[in-house]
Amino acid sequence: MLDDRARMEAAKKEKVEQILAEFQLQEEDLKKVMRRMQKEMDRGLRLETHEEASVKMLPTYVRSTPEGSEVGDFLSLDLGGTNFRVMLVKVGEGEEGQWSVKTKHQMYSIPEDAMTGTAEMLFDYISECISDFLDKHQMKHKKLPLGFTFSFPVRHEDIDKGILLNWTKGFKASGAEGNNVVGLLRDAIKRRGDFEMDVVAMVNDTVATMISCYYEDHQCEVGMIVGTGCNACYMEEMQNVELVEGDEGRMCVNTEWGAFGDSGELDEFLLEYDRLVDESSANPGQQLYEKLIGGKYMGELVRLVLLRLVDENLLFHGEASEQLRTRGAFETRFVSQVESDTGDRKQIYNILSTLGLRPSTTDCDIVRRACESVSTRAAHMCSAGLAGVINRMRESRSEDVMRITVGVDGSVYKLHPSFKERFHASVRRLTPSCEITFIESEEGSGRGAALVSAVACKKACMLGQ
C-alpha cells in the first residue's frame, strides 16, 4: 500500500517536472537572447534605426563620474514606483581627507489618484512632500541643488532636461508624456511658492545606482535594477552614441532593455503563462523582457503555473481556492519566502493557508518547484541581457580580458534567497573573457542622484555659470 502511494507521488512529481521543464533555458538559448539583445542595442544607438529599435539606448548626458572633490548639501528625489523618497545628502571631506556622503531620508507613498490623475496632481503632491521634508529638517530658507531620480523612459536633451516617452509600472498621470519632466517639477514648486529649489540633474535609477557604486569602486561602469521592473545602464564610447554629437570619451546610456521583445525577438521563448500575464497587464505587448524578470510579474506567473497544475490534477487534489483564482493573489514576496523555507515546509504551508488552501507535504514541495522554475528562468533571462552589455563593452574597448564592476539594486536581487547566485553564475558562463565584480548599492537611487548633481554643480562652477 505504502509502495503504491510512494509510486503515485513519484509519478505525480515526474509529471510536474515535465510541465515545469518549459521554463528551462539551455545555454544556447541564452546565447541567442544575448546576441539578439546586442543587435537591438546597436539599432538603438544608431541614428537611422533608433526610432524602430525596441531597446532605445537613451543617452543620459552623464559623462563624468564623481571624483571626490564636490562638497555641499544636496536634496535628492526618487520616483520610480508607488513609494517616493526625499533625501538630504551631505557631501563633504571625511576623516583623513576621505570623501564622505551622509544621508537623511523619508519615504512617502503615492496615492492612487496622483498616479493615475493628471501630471499637475502628481507633481503638486511631490512638491508637497518636499515642503514637508524641508519643514522637518528646518531647511526651507536654503535654496538647495536638487537631483531627481526618475525611473521611467526619458529622452534627455541635457542633464536637466528630459522628455517622458511613456509611463510604465502602473503610472498613468495624463499630460506628462511628451513633456519635460524637470519643467513639470519646477512648475509645481513655483505653484507652491513656499520654498526654492535648483533642479540641476535628472537621472534614471540605473544611472543613480551606477554612480553610487562608483563611489565604492571606481571600476563600476554598469548599473542595473532588478526590482519591480528590470533595466540597466553602462558607459558607452561616445563615438557609438549617434544621437549625441561628439566622439570623445564616454557617456552613460540608459538601455531601457525592459522593452526588448516588443518587436518579436522573444516570441519563441514566451510561454502561455507569459501571454496571460501580458494580456492582463496595463501595457499589453510592451516591456516583454521586463515581464519575464521583474517583481511586478513574478508572483503572478507562479500563480498561473499553480492553476495549470491544479487543472492537471497534480496539486491540491485538483481544487483551487477562490483566493488562488484571484489575479495578483500570489505576491512576489511569497516566491522569495517559499524558496527561503528551511525544509520543514512550515513557511510554505503558512503562505498557502493564507490563500485558503490546506496543502499536503507533496503540495508544498511542488509549489516550491514552481517558484524555483519561474525565478530561475528570470535570473537566466536577466543574465543574457547583462552578458550582452558586458561583452559589447569588452569588444568596443578591444580588451582581451576586461575587469568590470556592476552596481545592482532592486528588491528581487536583494531579497530573493537564490536569485543573485543563479544570476551571477549564468552571467559568468556567458562572459568567459571578463572578470566581473557585483556590488549592491546602498540607498543607491538617492545618493547617486545627489552625486550626479554634485558633478553638475562642479561643472557649472568651472564653466562660470
Rank of each mutant, 00 (worst) to 15 (best):
L2Y: 04
R5I: 13
M8Y: 15
M8S: 14
M8D: 14
K15E: 11
K15W: 13
I19F: 11
L20A: 02
L20V: 02
L20G: 10
F23C: 07
F23Y: 07
Q26V: 04
K31A: 12
M34F: 02
Q38D: 01
K39Y: 07
E40M: 04
M41R: 02
L45G: 06
R46D: 12
E48R: 09
T49C: 10
T49G: 09
H50F: 06
E52C: 15
S54N: 10
S54C: 11
S54L: 12
V55M: 12
K56S: 14
M57Q: 06
M57F: 02
L58T: 08
Y61W: 06
R63Y: 00
P66I: 10
P66L: 08
G68S: 11
S69V: 15
E70S: 06
D73N: 00
L77R: 00
L77K: 00
L79M: 09
T82E: 07
T82F: 09
T82K: 14
N83V: 04
F84T: 04
F84N: 02
L88D: 14
V89H: 01
V89I: 09
G92R: 04
G92C: 11
E95K: 13
E95R: 10
E95V: 09
S100R: 05
S100T: 10
V101P: 03
V101A: 03
T103I: 08
M107P: 07
M107A: 09
E112N: 07
E112G: 07
A114H: 14
A114Y: 15
M121Y: 01
L122Q: 06
L122P: 02
L122C: 06
L122N: 08
F123P: 10
F123Y: 15
E128D: 14
C129H: 12
I130M: 10
D132E: 03
F133V: 05
H137R: 05
Q138N: 11
K140R: 10
L144E: 02
P145M: 01
P153M: 15
H156D: 07
H156P: 13
H156S: 13
H156I: 10
H156Q: 05
E157G: 11
D158L: 15
D158T: 15
I159G: 13
I159A: 04
L165D: 11
L165N: 09
L165Y: 13
N166D: 14
T168N: 14
K169F: 15
F171L: 13
K172W: 06
S174I: 09
S174R: 06
S174Y: 06
N179E: 05
V181L: 09
V182W: 14
G183P: 12
L184Y: 15
R186K: 07
D187G: 02
G193H: 15
E196L: 05
M197H: 09
M197K: 00
D198M: 01
D198Q: 02
M202C: 03
N204G: 08
D205I: 01
D205W: 04
T206V: 05
T206D: 01
T206I: 02
T206R: 00
A208R: 01
T209E: 05
M210N: 00
M210A: 02
M210R: 00
S212W: 05
Y215M: 02
E216T: 07
H218R: 06
V222D: 00
G223H: 00
I225Q: 02
G227V: 01
G229M: 14
G229Y: 03
C230M: 07
Y234W: 01
M235R: 00
E236G: 01
E237T: 01
M238I: 12
Q239V: 10
N240W: 01
V241Q: 02
G246D: 03
G246T: 09
G246C: 12
E248V: 04
G249F: 05
G249T: 01
C252K: 00
V253R: 00
V253K: 01
N254C: 03
W257S: 02
A259N: 10
F260S: 03
F260V: 05
F260R: 01
G264D: 13
D267G: 03
F269S: 02
F269E: 06
L271N: 09
E272I: 06
E272N: 08
E272P: 02
R275V: 11
R275T: 15
L276E: 09
D278S: 12
S280P: 11
S281G: 14
N283S: 12
N283E: 09
Q286W: 12
L288T: 15
L288K: 15
L288Y: 15
E290F: 13
I293T: 11
G294A: 12
K296C: 13
Y297D: 13
M298W: 03
G299S: 07
G299D: 13
E300K: 02
L301W: 04
V302H: 01
V305E: 01
R308N: 03
R308S: 06
L309F: 14
V310C: 13
D311A: 10
E312D: 05
N313D: 08
L314H: 14
F316P: 05
F316C: 13
E319S: 15
A320K: 15
L324T: 07
R327Q: 14
G328E: 06
F330D: 01
T332E: 12
T332S: 09
V335G: 02
V335E: 03
E339S: 01
G343F: 07
Q347Y: 08
Y349S: 03
L355S: 04
R358F: 06
S360F: 03
T361I: 02
T361N: 11
T362C: 05
D363L: 01
D363N: 01
I366G: 02
R368F: 08
R369G: 02
R369V: 05
E372I: 09
E372K: 05
V374D: 00
S375M: 07
S375Q: 08
A379I: 12
H380Q: 13
H380I: 11
A384V: 07
A384T: 10
A384L: 11
G385K: 10
G385T: 05
L386E: 00
V389Y: 01
V389F: 04
N391W: 14
M393G: 10
M393N: 14
R397A: 14
R397V: 08
E399I: 07
D400C: 04
I404M: 03
G410K: 06
G410D: 08
V412R: 11
Y413F: 10
Y413E: 07
K414T: 12
L415G: 12
H416W: 15
K420G: 11
K420E: 10
E421M: 13
R422Y: 11
F423S: 04
A425T: 15
V427H: 06
V427Y: 02
T431I: 11
C434L: 07
E435H: 08
I436F: 11
I436K: 01
T437V: 12
I439D: 01
E440V: 08
E442V: 05
G444A: 03
S445W: 13
S445I: 12
G446W: 13
G446P: 15
G446Y: 14
G448V: 08
G448N: 13
A450V: 13
S453F: 14
A454N: 12
A456C: 11
A456G: 11
C457E: 11
M462Y: 14
L463E: 11
G464L: 13
